[in-house]
């Protein structure tokens, strides 16, 4: 029996974080889970909306929830940590305030109940992937990794109630199941610079640089993330990071879904690792059947670009 779950990819997963989307989808297929996209979903508003317009920042996520509800979805998987945060905060605010809920319903022109369960990618993995992992695991992830949670998965803790706000553990536990050694480091929930990526790149270089340096100092060989913003800043902004650190760094940044996918034998087309700007090269596994190949062997086609 295939399990069916609602799915909200969010804009990043359609663009800069395409590989995240690819890895989530292929991992789900591997584990016999059907992810059904919320029809005609819209952007959650991200940082811009709550910075500039409070109401809009609650209305946009509400439309997403309403669309999910319209399609009778009870649980939705939201891999993007920013979207997960915005949706959860909105649900929390609406639950607290009936008047606000009425205003929002009027704005989106749809009824809304607030009982939909919003799962972030870790919760999704814990509930639907982990129980089957012992069966599906084909390789041992033979690296020392730094699990980086960022802000949006764990804060505000009183609303999200996910893991521990200081020194979270869930990603570490998952990586340990794959056979990886996880480092204990203090930057798990420091901010990468988030929404300033484009507008104040040098600050992102600094904040993300401190994170990369700390991971390297503690001998990590890869950084594991669960947020497209963290990935974008740590991977795509590597030039700014290297400039801040005054050195060339090569530590790759992997989505947790990519790491699991690799350990379950998915190829790099399925996990999307070939799309990274910082290359994922080298032997990550013992018992490796499919070595992680250089992306020359697996070029990205024009169709894929568009």
């Amino acid at each position: 029996m295939k399990k069916k779950l609602g799915f909200y990819p969010g804009c990043s997963l359609e663009g800069t974080a395409k590989e995240y989307s690819e890895s989530v989808v292929s991992l789900s297929e591997q584990f016999d889970i059907e992810l059904k996209q919320i029809p005609d979903w819209n952007c959650c508003g991200a940082t811009a909306a709550h910075n500039l317009n409070k109401t809009l920042s609650l209305v946009l996520p509400s439309r997403i929830l309403a669309q999910a509800q319209k399609n009778e979805m009870k649980e939705i998987v939201v891999p993007c940590a920013a979207c997960y945060n915005r949706l959860s905060v909105t649900q929390y605010e609406l639950l607290k305030n009936d008047q606000l809920k009425a205003t929002v319903e009027q704005a989106i022109d749809m009824p809304l109940n607030t009982s939909i369960r919003i799962l972030n990618v870790i919760q999704f993995i814990q509930e639907y992937i982990l129980p089957e992992i012992p069966e599906k695991l084909s390789h041992t992830f033979d690296k020392k990794v730094a699990c980086y949670y960022g802000c949006l998965l764990v804060r505000p803790h009183n609303i999200l109630k996910f893991d521990r706000p200081e020194s979270p553990q869930f990603m570490d536990e998952i990586m340990q199941m794959l056979g990886a050694e996880t480092i204990d480091w203090p930057f798990k929930t420091e901010c990468c610079g988030a929404g300033l990526s484009v507008s104040r790149t040098e600050l992102v270089g600094k904040l993300s640089g401190k994170i990369v340096r700390e991971a390297l100092d503690r001998k990590a060989e890869a950084i594991i993330v669960a947020c497209p913003m963290c990935h974008a800043n740590l991977d795509m902004r590597r030039p700014a990071i290297d400039q801040y650190l005054e050195m060339k760094t090569e530590i790759p940044v992997l989505y947790i879904t990519q790491a699991i996918g690799m350990a379950c034998g998915l190829n790099e087309r399925q996990t999307g690792t070939r799309r990274h700007l910082v290359k994922v090269i080298g032997n990550y596994f013992t018992k490796t059947r499919i070595p992680v190949e250089n992306n020359e062997n697996n070029p990205i086609t024009v169709e894929e670009i568009i």
């Binding site: 663009g15 317009n53 989106i108 070939r274 990274h276 990205i300 670009i305």
Partner: peptide, 29 residues
């Protein structure tokens, strides 16, 4: 670089019910 890695889709994937979105912006403003 992003383009080559398929991280910058050239065409927008827009919401079908654009009217709804426009309404939302109008109402929230």
């Amino acid at each position: 670089q992003m383009l080559m890695h398929g991280k910058l889709p050239i065409f927008p994937k827009a919401v079908k019910n654009r009217k709804n979105i426009k309404e939302i912006f109008k109402k929230t403003n």
